[in-house]
Amino acid sequence: MARTYVQATINGVATDFLCEPRQSLLEVLRDELGLTGTKEGCNNGNCGACSVLLNGRLVNACCVLGVEIDGAEVTTIEGIGNPDRLHPLQQAFLEEAALQCGVCTPGFIVSAKALLDKEPHPDEQRVRYWLAGNLCRCTGYDKIVRAVLKAADDMEPARQ
């Protein structure tokens, strides 16, 4: 099977890999690069568990081909905060108990980060609209929405 050579910047690190054209970015991240924080929930763009940033824009990694990211910048959950220095969204998800099983959590955090990068002060309805592409079956979204709003507040001093 012909494999294509691809170079990209993933979480700030110059990365190269070989992949088949039919492999999605999600498959490449998980199976080729070992970045398993990005999850597969539906594989057709309807659950948001595979949310990543592609050149700064929020995408579903299952709806992108690995070969398409040649020359691009990709940010996954592994590129957002780390255990020693959590992103305010990660901290807020912990404090607000905004996760139960946690499998949708990376997608929600990546998606919410894309929102807050663009709009630092969304209201509740705006957060709900933006996150409508991310399904959670455990929480009823209440604590997720609260966590995103809290993170937006928490990030305010850092911006000033």
Partner: peptide
């Protein structure tokens, strides 16, 4: 009380290993 769950950090950073993550 409402402490942060012990497995929380692993789950918000994408490090937690779910079944499909086994290699």
């Amino acid at each position: 009380t409402r402490p942060v769950r012990p497995d929380g950090v692993e789950k918000v950073t994408g490090k937690a290993q779910y079944g499909a993550d086994v290699r």
